[in-house]
Structure formats: C-alpha cells, structure tokens
C-alpha cells in the first residue's frame, strides 16, 4: 500500500477486520510496519474492550519483567563498527606500504652490495598510515568527532594500533626474508611511530610524520646507500637504545595528553 489507510479502514482493522478482505488486511499490516504515523492513528482507533485487553497484557508484561532477572547490557561490536570506514580510508596507503616493502625485499635479493633496503625503510613504513588515520581529509565526520570526548590521544592510539596491526605483520614477513633480527626490524618502526605521535601533539600528526620521515631519510637512508654500508643505528647493538627511545617517547606523549585536542591535520 503506497497511500495511508483511511481512519475508517484503520478502525475496522482495529475491530478485527470486519468488512475487510484478506488482501486489505495484509496491505494495512504491511503499511503499519513502516508508518509510525498510522501506528499512532491505529492506537487511537482501538475500542474500549481492545484497549482494556491491551492494558491487561501490558500490566502482565510489566509484572513479568519486574519479577525476572535484570536485562543484560547489550555489548555492541563498536570497535568493528567504528573501524569500518577506517579500513577503506587506509586501504590505498597500506597497499602502497606493502608494495614498497615488497620492492625493497626484491631489491635486497637482487642487489647484495647495498645495505638491506627493508631495514632502511622499515622504521618509516607505518608513518603514512598513522598520518592518514589522524587526518580530517580521511575522515568525513571529522568535525562531529572533534567535538566528542573520545577525541584525543586515546583515539589516536587506537587508530595507530589499527595501522600497526597491518604493518607489523608485513614488516615481520619482509624482515624474515632478509634474515635480520625481528627486533631490529620492528623496534625502529615503533620508535618512529612513537616519535610521530609525541611530536604530533605540537605540530599535528601529519606534519610530524613528514618531519620524522624526512629526518630518517636524510640522516640514515641516504648516507647508508651512499656509503653502501648499514648505518650504526641499524646494527644489532642498537636494539636496547631503540627500546629505551620508544619507552621515552611514549612517556612524552602520555605526559602531554592534553595537546591532542581534536582530529585534524594540525593538532
């Protein structure tokens, strides 16, 4: 039924359908399922005996509910819900990260004279994803989200964890292909991610990611390739220092929790 049933039809329906054939009753029921206004009109069309019956049923239900166990809070899978859009926003960046690591692995196997490109690139591999996850350009509802109490360091860390959940296994796979220590592949990546978050409280996460990436490229990647030698910071002896740096940067970010005011490119 595409039009609203008349009051007379609703009244007959409320009385049990005298004068209405099965098709008309069915049409009214289908319409009532989707029309709140007509449901309200139907409630007003009920006769005295029907209303009394409904009240007795409602009273019985209330008594049953009161006597029964308290309702269990419904736990919605909201983490899955809220990440659904994030998956699509991050997909191109994470695909690119996987592609770059794959190429680095291929070059490692072809060009043995150079230091491992996987090791050189692994520390900055999570940064594009982290920058996108905390960017107003990637989140269509950023303005609404920015005015909610959930916005801040906790949300940034949750989104970063979503990125790391994809990038860390990729790095582990690529690292295994090079034969390098897993700690040497993952710890610098965690340190650079923590540095981006810590610096992001001051400059915005996107700018922080660019700055950390640029510093890493200028100070480690390019000299490493130019000298055809693995830089000191990526040799096994540096692992404890990376662990300490990660812990220190996480502590800095935690101490400046108030700086992560809103979801935006700048802060």
């Amino acid at each position: 039924m595409t039009t609203h049933p008349t009051l007379a039809v609703l009244a007959r329906y409320a009385d049990g359908g005298p004068g209405l054939d099965d098709a008309a009753v069915w049409s009214v029921e289908v319409h009532l399922e989707t029309c709140a206004d007509c449901r309200a009109r139907l409630a007003g069309s009920t006769t005295g005996p029907t209303r009394a019956l409904l009240e007795r049923v409602a009273a019985g239900l209330d008594r049953g509910i009161a006597a029964g166990p308290p309702p269990q809070p419904v736990r919605r899978p909201w983490s899955a819900l809220h990440r659904r859009w994030l998956v699509w926003a991050l997909l191109p960046w994470l695909t690119m990260t996987a592609g770059v690591l794959g190429c680095a692995l291929l070059l490692d196997s072809l060009q043995t004279a150079l230091p491992s490109l996987v090791l050189l690139l692994a520390p900055v591999a999570p940064l594009p994803g982290v920058a996108v996850a905390w960017s107003r350009r990637a989140d269509p509802a950023w303005e609404l989200i920015a005015g909610t109490p959930a916005t801040g360091l906790t949300m940034l860390l949750r989104r970063t964890a979503a990125v790391l959940g994809v990038v860390v296994p990729l790095l582990a796979l690529a690292g295994a292909g090079t034969g390098a220590s897993l700690a040497l592949v993952l710890l610098p990546a965690l340190t650079c991610t923590a540095a981006t978050i810590a610096l992001g409280g001051l400059t915005g996460v996107r700018r922080a990611a660019i700055a950390v990436g640029a510093v890493w490229a200028g100070a480690v990647v390019l000299p490493g390739i130019a000298d055809a030698e693995l830089p000191v910071v990526l040799r096994p002896g540096s692992i404890p220092l990376w662990a300490l740096a990660t812990a220190a940067l996480v502590a800095v970010a935690g101490a400046r929790v108030g700086d992560y005011r809103r979801l935006s490119s700048y802060n």
Partner: peptide, 24 residues
C-alpha cells in the same frame, strides 16, 4: 554533515552516542 555513507541511521547515531561516552 560529514558522514559515512555505508552506515545506517541507527549505526551512525549509536557511534556518536558511544563517542560521547554514554553508558553502553
């Protein structure tokens, strides 16, 4: 209004209820 096109009306409102830290 910036919104997620794949969300239903209830999902969208519920998402913001949770972001506003309403008791679940």
């Amino acid at each position: 209004l910036g919104y997620y096109p794949g969300f239903t009306v209830v999902e969208f409102v519920e998402y913001f209820a949770l972001l506003k830290e309403m008791p679940p």
